[in-house]
Structures are given as C-alpha cells and as structure tokens.
Design a protein around this nucleic acid. Structure first.
Length: 597
DNA sequence: GTTAGGG
DNA sequence: CCCTAAC
C-alpha cells in the first residue's frame, strides 16, 4: 500500500494534570503561587503541569472492579502473540510495557461527583505517565474547607469531612490524603465504558496489541518502590524549595510541552500555563450549616446571594486535579512515531488553547462572569453547589476563532460538538456534572503503530509506587474516530518531518534475530535479498536493507560487553553465532577477492 | 533493484 | 532506520 495509513485519535477529553503542591513524588513540576490576595482568595496555587498525558486508562484501580480484573487476567494471559512466522506479531506490546504505563490511570473518574463514599476511587492508582503526582491538598488552615475538584469527575473531598482533615496532616499530606480519597472518592464504573483507539491494520497485520493487553499493562500495579524522598515530612519551606527544584525538573522533562504551551500563552501565563491546580483559600467565605440551607437554586440567582451573617471565616479549598480539554481529533499516520503523536496532540491542544488563558468558573453549568462575587455569594461554598462547580481554561480573548480546521488539514477535525467546545473554549472540566466514563478510552492498537517506545513510559519514576503518586493521574482520552478521518483527513504540516516519513521503529525480536542469523549462516553476508526471501519473505516491514542493518548492529552488539547492550537482550548463543558467521563469511569474502588476484 | 556503508 | 553512492 502506497499511502500511509493514518491513525485517527480522537481525544474526547484531554486531562490536564494538576499537580498538587504537596505532592512529592513529582519528578518534574513547577509551582506558581499567588497568594495573599486579601480578597476572597487568599491563596491560589497553581502547580499543575500540562505536561502531556496521552494515555488514558479509565479503569478504576480498584481491584474489585470487575472489568479491570478481567483485563488484568487477560493481560497476564499474554495476549500478545509473537509468532515465529515472519509476520506474526513481533510487536510485544513494548509500547506499553514500560512500568510507568501501569501508572497511567486517570485520576478522574466518571461522574463521581457527590457519589463517592465507599467506593474505591481509581485515583488511588491513577498516575500520569509523565508525572508522578497525586492530588494533594496543601494544608492551610485547620478550618479550611476542602473541595476536591477533579477534572470532570468526582472524587472530591467533602468539606469538613473528617477524613479530609485527617488527610491533610502536616507531615503526611499525600498518603493520608490518598487513602482518604480511596474511601471518599469513588466510581467503580469509571472505565467500563472506555473506548478504544484502534489503528487500522490493513496490509501488515503485523504487530498486535490488543486492547486488553494494553489496558492491563496500563493498569498493572506499579512495582513497589518506595521513594525515600517521599517519606520525609513536608514543611512549608520544604515545599517551596521543592517546588523550585521540581519546577526545574519539570522543565527539563517536558521541554517541548512546556515551551509549546507557554509560547502560546503569553504574559501572565508564564507560570500558570501548565499549572492548573488551584487551592483556593477563602477566608472570607462563610460556610456553615445555615448557609448550606440557603440553597441557591439557580445560578442566575447567585449574584443575589449574600454572605450569611452567621458564617465564620471558613476557607474553601479547591483542589483542581485536572482540566479537561474538549474532544480532539488527531489524524496521524500509523507510521508516525510516538513522539510525533505527542507533538501532534500537543499542537492540537495548544491550538485550541490559543494564546493566553484565563480561568472560567462554571456553576451548575453556567458561567459565573461576575468576578466580584464572593464564593459565598455564588454559592460555591455550598455542598450542593460545589458539586456543580467547574473550571475552564479559556483563551483570554474570548474566541480567537481558531484557524478553520476544515480548511487547515494540518489541524484537527472538529465535530459540531467540538466546535461548540471551542466556542465556549477550550479546557474545561466540570466537576460533578461531567461524566467522564463515556469519555475515557483506552488505546487499542490492532496493528502496531508503535514507535518510540520510551516515550510512552517516558519517565520511569521510582516514585511510581508511591501511594501518593497514585493519587493523581492525568490522562488524555484517546478514542479512535474513523469517521472523522474520513470526513476530514488531516495532514501533518510539512514542517514536521516525522510525519509520514520515517518508518516506525520495530526492534527485532529474538526470534527474528535467530531467523536472521540462521539465514546468514547459510547464505552469508552480502546476499541480503536472498536472506530476506528466505527468512523474512512475509515480513513486509523488514526490507533486506533492514536485515543488513540489523546484521550490522548484531555484529556490533556481539562485540561489545553485555553491559553496553541495550534493548531486548539477545541470547549470547545467538551473538556467538553472529560472530562466527560474520567471521566465516568475511573470510570467504576475502578469499573471493583474493582469488582473482 | 541491490549492496555497502556512513549518518 | 535513513540516505545514497556504487554497481
């Protein structure tokens, strides 16, 4: 097939991770603090990073989750086939085989808002691929109210909930919090409706990574590797310094994303760009049972709300775990690398976000436009309302109509729904009202479109196991959408050389190596076309040039010390044969060259 | 179209 | 894996 097959990734939502300040496992993270406003908001921390999260697993980590359990079983059953036959799946699921993938569980559970209670929240297992963070609330005042806002999903701590307080102890902010959430947050059905991202496999029926395998890999529990650093208590100062260092780490880790993001969000976004977690302290906010009784029926009446006279200086703490970006459609050649996919998604996101961002507040689905209203006035402090509280990240300039997506094939396709989203703007996540379950998807790759393996699990984090780190996960929600592809074929901008250009990297499996060695032993070096025909005739993705190159690397590998070797280990026995064959045929070649003389 | 070798 | 000179 001459034309490149393209993969359509539909991102129903893009979870922009919010990195809690208290989080310690973060590998990279920046923190921006803007506090002491002396107004309603006394403290606002933005600690999250937009650092990409491209995989989304929306299963609950709850082992009791039936669906998940099944998946796990399937996974362990090894549904990744590897045939000795040239074509059979050589793909071994490497793409997701890296440890960190197992962490890729979103912290957001579909429509859990207010439904939490005794259900275990997948958040406990959630983890961003790139970041090891868990939602963490930073403790401020003992009387603070804590509202946990997780992008589009539930899991938020009820204000005043005793667990919340417990969780926010000084020295152990994260873990306790996590544990608390496990009880408070819920949503067993989080991932049941996951969609799949499928890569059409036409010609090569080559590598295959079933959904279940992926999912299971994604969901497999991370190794238990304690992270020393996380064990220490965190003091305020510590956090500060840590934030700084983490910021650096973050920048190092996600240079591209960060750069990209910030470039497009000027001025004040320098910091906030990818940081979305906010902890709001509303010292002026009065919340008490009385106020709660004063239900605000309609957001339109919010403006009329008055601060309850009897209220005391309670603070409302909001922890925004993530923001959701409207559905995105990505069209990408299946041969594109993972890195390309990342960049594409990033571009899509940044394209939507446009330039500067500002935060929009939604209450019960309606935008709260009056910035002068107090929380108490808007009813945000009320439990019932809080469940309806949502945040949006939107372009500063109301609607910079994005380049016509239809006209710009390099971009994203948009569905009517998406167009609406864009109009209302970009990142948005609504607490409680948003049902993530339907948005979550898993990636399914029928035919391997694998590329840069490292990317997926890019940051093997030792903290992965940290309980805290499990607290948060962010994830993009890829869902394939072939229709979109058909309707609006997207093409990569010429500027990106990756697209449709370089073939995906497909490491040779041991079996392939063995086949190659055997063929070369018999045919010798220099007859790559024959080798190809003999041992890889059906492996269309292996050209004789590939075989020649592989042989070259094999010889090199065989000559270096085992410690220097990378990738899937090749049995020494095979390497020995490589050297032997190489020596033999080199000698033969010399003889042939000498004979004429 | 293959081979060989550098990138 | 890519690129390309050389055959």
């Amino acid at each position: 097939m001459v034309l490149q097959k393209r993969l359509n990734y539909s991102f129903d939502g893009y979870q922009v991770p919010v990195i809690p300040r208290a989080s310690r496992s973060a590998r990279g993270r920046s923190s921006i603090r803007k506090k002491r406003d002396n107004s309603h908001i006394h403290a606002f921390e933005i600690l999250a990073s937009v650092a990409g999260n491209f995989l989304h697993a929306n299963e609950s980590s709850n082992p009791e989750n039936t669906a998940l359990a099944k998946e796990a079983d399937l996974f362990h059953g090894n549904d990744v086939k590897e045939k000795q036959d040239d074509e059979a799946g050589f793909f071994k699921g490497d793409l997701f085989a890296h440890g960190t993938c197992s962490e890729v569980i979103t912290a957001c559970v579909p429509g859990l808002q207010g439904e939490h209670d005794n259900q275990s929240h997948l958040e406990g297992q959630g983890q961003n691929v790139l970041e090891k963070e868990e939602g963490g609330l930073k403790r401020r005042n003992s009387n603070e109210k804590i509202i946990h806002i997780k992008g589009s999903s539930g899991g938020f701590t009820e204000p005043g909930h005793k667990v919340s307080k417990d969780c926010i102890s000084d020295n152990n902010v994260e873990k306790p919090l996590l544990e608390c959430r496990k009880h408070l947050d819920s949503s067993p059905h989080g991932g049941s409706t996951a969609r799949k991202l499928v890569n059409r496999d036409d010609d090569e029926n080559f590598a295959r990574c079933t959904q279940s395998s992926l999912r299971n890999k994604i969901c497999s529990p991370p190794p238990d590797t304690p992270k020393p650093k996380d064990a220490s208590p965190i003091t305020s100062d510590e956090n500060n310094s840590r934030d700084n260092s983490e910021l650096e780490n973050l920048q190092r880790m996600y240079p591209f994303k960060k750069r990209k993001f910030f470039n497009q969000s000027s001025s004040s976004t320098s910091d906030r760009g990818s940081h979305c977690q906010g902890v709001f302290d509303f010292s002026d906010t009065k919340v008490n049972s009385t106020i709660h009784g004063t239900a605000i029926e309609d957001s339109s009446s919010i403006a009329d709300q008055q601060v309850h006279p009897g209220s005391k200086g309670c603070n409302v703490k909001l922890s925004i775990k993530s923001f959701k970006v409207p559905e995105l459609f990505i069209d990408i050649p299946e041969t594109a690398t993972i890195g390309s996919l990342k960049r594409t998604v990033m571009e899509a996101v940044t394209a939507i976000l446009g330039d500067e961002l500002h935060v929009g507040i939604l209450l019960q689905g309606k935008k709260v436009r009056d910035d002068n209203k107090t929380l108490i006035q808007t009813g945000i402090c009320q439990d019932d309302k809080r469940h309806r509280l949502g945040f949006m990240l939107e372009p500063r300039h109301s609607r910079i109509s994005p380049p016509s997506y239809n006209e710009d094939p390099c971009y994203l396709t948009s569905t009517p729904q998406q167009k609406l989203s864009r109009q209302s703007t970009s990142l948005m996540f609504q607490q409680g009202t948003y049902n993530v379950s339907q948005e979550r998807s898993l990636i399914k790759i029928e035919s391997c479109a694998e590329g840069d393996i490292n990317m997926v699990s890019s940051v093997p984090d030792t903290s992965a196991n940290n309980n805290m780190s499990k607290c948060r996960a962010l994830v993009a929600v890829p869902a394939i959408n072939m229709e979109a592809l058909a309707v609006v074929p997207l093409r990569r901008k010429s500027g990106n050389p990756d697209f449709g250009q370089r073939r995906i990297r497909r490491p040779f499996s041991v079996l392939e190596v063995e086949a190659l060695v055997q063929a070369v032993e018999k045919l010798g070096t220099g007859r790559w076309r024959d080798v190809k025909q003999r041992a890889f005739d059906h492996a269309k993705h292996r050209t004789y040039v590939d075989l020649k190159d592989k042989w070259k690397t094999l010889v090199h590998t065989a000559r270096i010390s085992p410690q220097q070797r990378r990738g899937e280990p090749v049995p020494q026995e095979l390497l020995d044969r490589v050297l032997a064959a190489h020596a033999y045929w080199s000698q033969q070649q010399c003889k042939h060259q000498l004979k004429p003389l």
